[in-house]
């Protein structure tokens, strides 16, 4: 068995990125004021984040907009210099040895293409072959594989600007993989794609990971990406790491919340009911919402503290219940909760 150290591909230690920008004031008056002021605002986009990633892992890097995901990726790829801390990719510091690092990595930014806009896709690949110094044999072999998983041949001769978003994403993914990088960074790879294309892209990523043991780090807002691809997720919020672990563990801790929806006859009767107090738990452990129009009462509660019958009894004392639905919390909900309230589940 190999030593653990040898398997570590990415090592991020105490990395921090601070952006300093002139203070902006709102409104037109503010714009004039801004002209004459010299106040600066500094913002830590990434604040003391550390983690290690091993070869062959697919790691989901998630967080809300502006949480610092892209900034971290950009530091790992060598685009940005960290303000503090250090990251090593394949034993190379991407900021100090940009070119060496660039040979080892492939990057796809979902929001912008790295291909040559006006050139046919085939020409973009020819240029990339030269840039990455890929030998003719390797190139042929790679193209067979890429055509297989990404079906590039369908639009290989068309200018990039004429490609649909899905085709472009496949093209970009192919371009990032041409030189067989050890690490693949994907920043929102499925953004704006329809379900079928998303599925194809995910399959392709999986295949690549399996065949070449490519380490994949992807940021996404799409929970589907994470559920299908990632064995491990890192969640960051406001520049800080708030969770790092397996998807199952996250579901276990946070999936303690359960939801029960009841259709009631007279919602106004339960409107002022303080369920938590009545059942002797805290408001965090049990909260409810009343939809008067649909006559639906929804109660969210901790499954370790309360049982469904307890809640139903309390409600039925006041009004008649006509229908009941019980739901487990989905991952999307968990993540939403984390974004909204920060990760408090870990202490529980």
């Amino acid at each position: 068995m190999k030593l653990r150290e040898e398997k570590i591909v990415i090592e991020v230690s105490h990395i921090t990125k601070e952006f300093v920008s002139p203070k902006k004031y709102p409104g037109l008056k503010g714009a004039i004021k801004g002209l004459f002021s010299n106040e600066k605002v500094s913002k830590k986009a990434v604040d003391d984040i550390s983690f290690t990633i091993e070869a062959g892992e697919i790691v989901g890097y998630i967080g809300s907009n502006g949480a610092g995901k892209s900034t971290t990726i950009k530091m790992m790829t060598g685009i940005l210099n960290p303000t503090e801390g250090r990251c090593m990719v394949n034993g190379i510091n991407p900021c100090k040895q940009r070119k060496e690092n660039a040979r080892n990595i492939g990057v796809v930014f979902g929001q912008r293409t790295q291909l040559w806009w006006d050139l046919p896709l085939s020409e973009s690949f020819t240029i990339l072959k030269e840039i990455y110094d890929v030998s003719d044999e390797d190139y042929k072999e790679r193209m067979v594989f890429l055509n297989n998983v990404l079906e590039l041949q369908d639009f290989f001769d068309r200018p990039v600007r004429t490609l649909s978003l899905g085709q472009r994403m496949r093209a970009d993914l192919g371009a990032a993989l041409l030189h067989n990088p050890k690490v693949l960074y994907l920043d929102e790879p499925t953004i704006g794609l329809d379900l079928v294309v998303k599925d194809n892209i995910r399959k392709a990523i999986k295949e690549i990971n399996e065949k070449y043991q490519t380490t994949v780090i992807l940021t996404t807002h799409d929970i589907g990406d994470i559920e299908e691809l990632c064995s491990r997720i890192i969640i960051i919020d406001q520049g800080k790491k708030i969770y790092d672990g397996s998807l199952e563990a996250l579901k276990d801790t946070y999936g303690t919340k359960r939801k029960v929806s009841m259709e009631v006859k007279k919602p106004e009767k339960v409107e002022h009911l303080n369920l938590a107090e009545r059942l002797g738990v805290t408001a965090q452990e049990c909260s409810m919402e009343v939809d008067k129009e649909q006559k639906v009462l929804t109660v969210t509660f901790d499954k370790h503290k309360l049982q469904v019958p307890q809640i139903m009894n309390a409600v039925m004392e006041l009004t008649e219940v006509q229908d009941v639905k019980i739901q487990e919390t989905e991952l999307a909900e968990i993540v939403k909760q984390i974004y909204n309230h920060g990760f408090t589940g870990q202490e529980a």
Partner: peptide, 13 residues
């Protein structure tokens, strides 16, 4: 607009 990123990602001058 950040398009300079692409130059930073390639192993060339």
């Amino acid at each position: 607009n950040g398009d300079f990123d692409r130059y930073m990602l390639r192993p060339m001058n």
